[in-house]
């Protein structure tokens, strides 16, 4: 697949609370913004300034519900497409997940069953979405604390089949891979070795914490050493074109955030951007 974020290296998710910090990163070449937080006609000024100085901005959707049995809402797709145009985005990303059903909003990304029916529903929704988008789509497998019963595919089989059918990119969240494997007593490397790594457009890296015996992918805690180790293992197999640190709250002092970005860069064998 063509590398849409070739040589973009390490980036960090753009959030209003850390907009000044992000703007001050000398080596920054790409960032990501929650698509639903951007008004298509009026992107935040500091984000528009990054775009104007050549930083690639990836809109990251969280509300399309591509994995829902219901057809994806055309107005949501249209809005995502408009945000991509506004930000001059090289691609957009979304999730292998659903967020609502029967009129109820979950308020979070929920896993789909690994069944043929879910694969068909996802495929239909991804095709509908790609038909309206001006740029390629990358799909992110999510972290989930529980599994659906009666899986007909392994996670690797399900994702590989989905990506092949729809010919979209993979947004691999290394922390999600770690969280899912740890909470199920599995080896995260088993999944890495079975995924089509050549489809990776970019990776997510995030922090989390242990609570009541489970690892929670919170995005509000430091990145644990185990996740950085997994970045190292992934990069040894096939270095991703770009990696993005996600932080969504309880923002640490700038020095800590810089150290975390440096640690991600070092683990991936990429230049520091700080």
């Amino acid at each position: 697949m063509t590398e849409v974020l070739a040589q973009c290296g390490v980036g960090i998710g753009w959030r209003p609370e850390i907009a000044g910090f992000v703007a001050g990163l000398p080596g920054l070449r790409f960032t990501e913004v929650i698509a639903e937080s951007v008004h298509p006609g009026h992107p935040p000024r500091l984000l528009a300034e990054l775009r104007d100085r050549g930083v690639r901005v990836v809109p990251h959707g969280v509300r399309l519900s591509l994995g829902g049995a219901e057809p994806v809402a055309p107005e949501r797709v249209a809005r995502l497409a408009a945000v991509a145009e506004t930000l001059d985005a090289p691609l957009v990303s979304e999730h292998v997940a659903f967020v609502r059903a029967g009129g109820l909003e979950a308020g979070h990304l929920l896993p789909v069953p690994r069944t043929r029916a879910a694969l068909e529903a996802l495929t239909d929704n991804i095709r509908r979405t790609c038909a309206e988008l001006p740029v390629p789509l990358a799909l992110e497998p999510i972290a989930a604390l529980f599994d659906w019963p009666d899986a007909e595919y392994t996670e690797a089989e399900f994702l590989t089949e989905l990506l092949e059918r729809t010919d979209v990119h993979l947004l691999l969240d290394v922390a999600n891979v770690y969280a899912n494997a740890r909470n199920r007593g599995q080896d995260p490397l088993d999944l890495l070795d079975r995924l089509p790594l050549e489809r990776i457009a970019y990776c997510h890296v995030a922090g989390g914490r242990r609570h009541e015996g489970l690892y929670h992918d919170t995005h509000t805690d430091p990145v644990p050493a185990e996740v950085l180790d997994l970045v190292r293992e992934l990069s040894a197999r096939r270095r991703p074109p770009a990696l993005l640190l996600e932080r969504d709250g309880r923002y640490p002092p700038a020095a800590e955030l810089r150290a975390e970005l440096d640690a991600v860069a070092a683990a991936a064998g990429l230049p520091a951007i700080t």
Binding site: G68, A69, E70, F98, R100, A101, G102, L104, E105, A106, L110, V112, P113, T115, R116, A117, A118, E120, A121, W148
Partner: peptide, 14 residues
């Protein structure tokens, strides 16, 4: 199958 998936997703969210 699609309707069964919709019902199962609705039950999970509920």
């Amino acid at each position: 199958a699609r309707e069964a998936l919709a019902a199962a997703q609705e039950a999970l969210v509920a």
